[in-house]
Design a protein around this nucleic acid. Structure first.
Lengths: 214, 214
DNA sequence: GGGCCTATTGTCCTTGAGGGCAACGTCAGG
DNA sequence: CCTGACGTTGCCCTCAAGGACAATAGGCCC
């Protein structure tokens, strides 16, 4: 099922959509197509991840609006726009919003395949690093509230005794929590723990009620 | 001198350039202007940092070429393009290469000031984080070659004895180097050292001849 | 040759981190 | 009422990290 990434075509012109589908399929891509933005949005939950070939001018919800909606849903799949009468402001807006490319109809086959390749490459790269962050976050999610507090303080370089004081408990307890943190995060060294905190943005957030070390 | 950021106008049309300069000056900006891309490139070393208002269509070196050249020089100042007869592919290329905006002549005053404000805001944000990275890198630059090796290994969670073995020296020596590293990086805790390594991309680079810990 | 920096190393001692073992109290579920 | 997860803590022991004090050796500049 989740083998190769899928190319999702969204265009209200059925004949164009069909032609495009066939073109991409013979080029070896997996393709699905939708006649409208709403149609795509409805099936988005079950859709295979991949990139989107999106027509700008569509009735009801146009391409840019769909792009906005996807951003709101945190669906950051790469988008390649296609437009018949492309104007500069529209293309600028699309690209600034993160579109991979903005092609003018009639679309040259080479340009299209090139854009799709770049989109898929970006997709792969993004997904890989996103997966990594997510797996780290899921590890962190297994920490109990108390362990999270200890984690946040230890990766800021606080000593056990300082953490104990700040949390109003004993050093031995902190050691116990710390042990659990290392175990749950599946790291062997303190350095790795700090690295995880850094990658997941934990160190960027404000120190929770930090008291400067005397 | 280095007070407010400067807006650098690059356009071959002298009258347009003049009008733009006056407009921006009365709006309270510091402005310099250049009649060609080469003219700008010649004075770039001594130029005040800021953003660039760049005409696309110029003889000899056009706006996009200047953008490329600046990227090659790692001059990542925000660029606002202006073009008389803007076409979609050109604008797409400019934005994809990182331009802040792409405006069509005649440029509306509001749109221009808005784009400039965004460009300057981005400039400030970028510069701030860049300055932070640079100051960290300059700290790292004070490390001797040997200290750098030790630093790279310690932030990967290696124990002193492992580092000593790998570098063919004694544990005591590593302790001495480690001490110097902490001092030169001006950090009190090991966690901060790891954090610096992470921020400066040191942890992303391949482990130098890493030997797995038995 | 003398002075200074870098790298190196040793010994001794202190402190911090971490683990083993054992135990206690609370609170939510079953 | 029993169980299990969570938070808690004491005692003791080991090992790693770090500082103090001291010393050696190679290079480089004056």
């Amino acid at each position: 099922m989740t083998g190769a990434p899928v190319i999702h075509i969204v265009d209200d012109d059925a004949s164009f959509r069909g032609a495009l589908s066939r073109l991409l399929e013979v080029s070896g891509y997996a393709v699905t197509d939708y006649g409208s933005a709403n149609c795509f949005l409805r099936s988005i939950e079950s859709a295979e991840p991949g990139c989107i070939l999106l027509d700008v001018n569509m009735p009801s919800v146009d391409g840019l609006q769909l792009q906005e909606e996807l951003a709101r849903l945190s669906m950051r799949w790469p988008i390649v726009f296609m437009s018949g009468r492309g104007d500069v402001p529209t293309s600028v807006r699309a690209i600034k919003a993160g579109a991979e490319d903005f092609l003018l109809k009639p679309v040259s086959k080479d340009a299209l395949l090139d854009a799709i390749d770049r989109a898929l490459a970006r997709f792969a790269a993004t997904r890989q690093q996103q997966d990594q962050i997510n797996s780290l976050r899921s590890l962190i999610a297994t920490l109990t509230p108390r362990e999270s507090e200890v984690f946040a303080l230890m990766v800021r370089g606080k000593m056990n005794k300082q953490i104990a004081f700040q949390l109003g408990t004993s050093e031995r307890t902190i050691k116990a929590h710390r042990h659990m943190v290392m175990e749950k995060l599946q790291v062997q060294s303190f350095a790795e723990a700090v690295s995880i905190a850094e990658k997941t943005g934990l160190l960027a957030s404000p120190a929770t009620g930090d008291v400067e070390n005397p």
